[in-house]
Structures are given as C-alpha cells and as structure tokens.
Amino acid sequence: MSKKILIITGDGGETLEVLYPYERLREAGYTPVVAAQSTDRKIQLVVHDFADDFDTYTEKLAHMWPADVAIDDVDPAEYAGLIIPGGRAPEYLRLNENVLNIVRAFFDADKPVAATCHGPLILARAGVLDGRECAAFGMCEPDVTDAGATYVDAADVTSGNLVTARAWNDNGPWMGAFLKLLG
C-alpha cells in the first residue's frame, strides 16, 4: 500500500490545517504530497483568528508553501488517503471539476479522507456527504446539512472512511482519528 497522502489546498488555505497534518504525517512515516492548482509558484497560506471587536474571524498572511503536484496531474490511485484543509481555499477549489473527481475517487475506493473547517464545502459539492455525520466550521453547517449530512459539533467525527473536524484547534484529535483510519 502507498504511504503517500494527498493534501489538496491553495491560496487562502489555513496554515495550521495544512502544516500540522503535513508534519504529523511525516512523523508517522507517511509522505504528504501537497496538490494545488499550479506548481508554478508557492501557495499563500493564511492564519485565521478571532478578535473581540470583530463579528467573524480575521485573516492574516502566513507561510508561503510549494505545491508538489498540480491538481490536474493527480492520480488518486497513487495515494493511501486524502486531506482537505480549510481556510478560504475550499471556496474556490470546490468549483474545480478535477478536485471533485479526485474526492469521488477516494470515496469510491473507500480510502480514508480527512476534512476540516471549510474543507467539507468541497465534500458537499462532490456529493459524498449524504447520510454521513460531518463536523465543519460552524458557518458551514448549512452547506453540510444541505448536502444530506448530519452536522456534528465535535473535534473529530468519524463516519465510515471520513473524519472531519471544526477547525485548527481540533488538529490533534482530528489527525489522531485520521491516522487510525489509515491503520
């Protein structure tokens, strides 16, 4: 079995939801592979946080990170699992038909999939949430339930081959559950 794990993200991806899984996978002996729309330039990751005088989260520029492979060049058969971090990247990546096809291929093969924060927006658009339980950032609850899932407000929610979480502060339990699915 492959030890490669695909991480799909892009500009506006949440730093802690990309880099924590990346390093945790390396620690566990896996090879994380970051896929983005292009490998021509580095991805601009961001940090989301909360301020007392702000109605929603704030966003600040964070690390730049190179993509290992372009989304158009991904062959899902080469990977043991898939991670979809949050941030704003899922908002536009869910419009990429190749991303949706990659997601469907992982579900068709019953391979482990992890998504957090806004990542379930991609799962909803791919049509793979119907009948499942799913965590996500609270503002994504309508998208998750409209896709046929039951929204669960928890740090790690496992539903078949899928493990989801609310946001970066759930990284530990979320990645622990994902690594358990990987075996």
Results as ranks from 00 to 15, higher is better:
His118Ser: 08
Leu61Met: 09
Asn98Thr: 13
Val33Asp: 03
Tyr20Leu: 11
Cys134Glu: 05
Trp168Gln: 00
Gly86Phe: 01
Ile102Val: 14
Pro66Arg: 15
Asp68Trp: 13
Val46Ala: 13
His48Leu: 14
Lys60Phe: 06
Tyr22Asn: 07
Asn96Asp: 13
Leu61Tyr: 06
Asn101Gly: 13
Pro32Asn: 10
Phe178Tyr: 11
Thr145Lys: 11
Lys42Leu: 12
Ile43Ala: 03
Val34Ile: 15
Pro173His: 00
Ile8Phe: 04
Val18Tyr: 08
His48Gln: 13
Asp11Arg: 08
Val113Lys: 01
Asp68Arg: 11
Ala36Pro: 00
Thr9Trp: 07
Arg94Met: 15
Lys180Gln: 08
Ala147Gly: 08
Gln37Ala: 14
Glu97His: 05
Gly87Phe: 03
Ala124Ile: 08
Pro173Ile: 00
Gly119Arg: 00
Arg26Val: 15
Gly176Met: 03
Cys117Phe: 05
Lys4Glu: 12
Leu129Val: 12
Cys117Lys: 06
Gly160Pro: 09
Val69Gln: 02
Ala89Phe: 10
Gly131Thr: 14
Gly131Trp: 14
Thr164Gln: 04
Tyr79Asn: 07
Pro120Met: 00
Leu100Ile: 06
Ile7Gln: 03
Ala80Ile: 12
Leu19Pro: 05
Leu100His: 01
Leu16Ile: 13
Arg125Cys: 07
Val144Ile: 15
Ile71Val: 15
Glu17Gly: 03
Tyr30Leu: 07
Phe107Val: 15
Gly148Ile: 07
Gly160Trp: 08
Glu59Phe: 10
Gly87Met: 05
Pro90Ile: 08
Phe54Asp: 01
Pro32Glu: 09
Leu123Asp: 02
Thr158His: 03
Leu93Tyr: 08
Ile8Arg: 03
Gly13Arg: 07
Lys42Gln: 14
Asp146Asn: 13
Gly87Glu: 02
Ala165Gln: 10
Ile84Thr: 02
Asp170Ala: 11
Ala154Gly: 04
Glu17Lys: 00
Ser159Ala: 15
Leu6Ser: 09
Thr31Asn: 03
Ser159Phe: 02
Arg41Glu: 09
Phe107Pro: 00
Lys42Gly: 06
Pro120Val: 05
His48Ala: 12
Gly81Thr: 06
Val163Gly: 03
Thr9Glu: 06
Val152Gln: 02
Thr145Ile: 10
Tyr92Pro: 01
Gly87Ser: 05
Tyr22Pro: 02
Thr56His: 09
Asn171Ser: 14
Asn98Phe: 10
Pro173Arg: 00
Gly29His: 13
Phe106Leu: 07
Asp40Asn: 10
Gly183Gln: 10
His63Pro: 02
Met64Asp: 06
Val34Phe: 09
Gly127Ile: 02
Ala51Asn: 02
Thr31Met: 10
Val163Asn: 01
Ile84Gly: 01
Phe178Leu: 12
Gly12Thr: 13
Cys117Trp: 01
Asn98Gly: 02
Asn171Asp: 13
Ala67Arg: 12
Asp110Pro: 00
Asp130Cys: 09
Pro112Lys: 02
Ala126Glu: 07
Gly10Arg: 04
Ile122Gln: 04
Asn98Glu: 14
Pro85Ile: 06
